[in-house]
Structures are given as C-alpha cells and as structure tokens.
C-alpha cells in the first residue's frame, strides 16, 4: 500500500525549482527594445501566422519593470547605449536577453563611428539570433532556447 492511498486528495511530489521554472518558462513577458528593421520582423513573430503566444510569451510589456525578457531588435547606436543599459538595469531579476539580428549582435554591416559593435559590450546576452533580419522561426527558436535555459534555473540563486 502506497503513501498516496493514505491521503484524501491527489498530490505529486516535486521541487520548488521545477514548479517555478515551469511557470516562468511558459509566461515570459518580453520587453521589446526595437530600434530598427528587426523590430518590424518582430511584429510578424507576434501576429497570427507565427503567433508567439503559442509559447506563452505574447504579453509584450512596454515597461521594463514588468518584463523579464529583453528583446533587443535593431541597430544600437552609441547615443542609444546608455538608454539600453538603463532599461536593462530597470528590469527586475530574474531576466533574460535575446539579441535579435546582425546589428544587435555584432553591429552588423554598420562597422562605423556611431554604432555599438554588439550589445554584449553593454549588457549580458543569453541568446543571439543570426540574420538580417532573422526569420520569425529563428526568433521563436530563440524563445525556446530561453525556455530551456529557464527550466535549468536554480531559484536559490536569485535570492
């Protein structure tokens, strides 16, 4: 006779980490930091054909205080750099960052005086998405990668 038969209601044994991570990974709230053409492609990711809500990440927040996934989509100029840094700092922990497209990841073809050569000079990046602009599938792929990363998270580490 198992332990479960001694209790009236059904129950499962799990860890806090699994429950929290399971909840988090299917309810990412993205903060879109769109500065160029990649942001237009992101509109395709959100709308019905590609439908980011299939992955639970459709609740796009325009306040960094309410978001846990920063999507940097587009060319980041040196003048924009302090703004991006501040937006990242304003997001509560835990938070993740996707760098979408060649520009955000490496400066792209803007190898010039005014463009930051990759946002990893400013903030930590979890997933880079290649392409100019990346296909919506690639962005969804990046969301899945973030979900994998979230599911490995240790809640204790955030305390």
């Amino acid at each position: 006779m198992g332990l479960e038969s001694r209790l009236d209601t059904p129950w499962v044994a799990t860890t806090i980490d699994s429950v929290v991570n399971w909840g988090r990974k299917y309810s990412l709230w993205p903060m879109p930091f769109g500065t160029a053409c990649c942001a237009i492609e992101f509109m395709g990711v959100v709308s019905n054909r590609y439908d980011i809500s299939r992955f639970g990440a459709e609740l796009v927040r325009f306040s960094p205080r309410q978001a846990d996934l920063l999507l940097v989509m587009g060319t980041i100029t040196q003048k924009m750099a302090p703004v991006l840094q501040q937006i990242y700092d304003q997001m509560p922990n835990p938070k993740w960052v996707i760098s979408m497209g060649a520009c955000a990841s490496s400066g792209g073809f803007y190898d010039n005086y005014s463009v930051v050569q990759g946002i990893d000079e400013l903030i930590p990046v979890d997933v880079y998405v290649a392409g100019c602009p990346p296909r919506p599938e690639n962005v969804l792929g990046a969301i899945v990668k973030i979900q994998e990363k979230v599911s490995r998270e240790k809640t204790a580490a955030w305390r």
Binding site: Q78, P82, Q85, N112, Y113, Q117, L122
Partner: peptide
C-alpha cells in the same frame, strides 16, 4: 577620420 576608430560610450 580613421574608419574603424572606436569611441568611448556615451554617458547617460
């Protein structure tokens, strides 16, 4: 102006 000269980042 050197084409690949890098500048320090802007202050907030």
């Amino acid at each position: 102006y050197p084409i690949n000269k890098r500048q320090k980042l802007a202050r907030p």
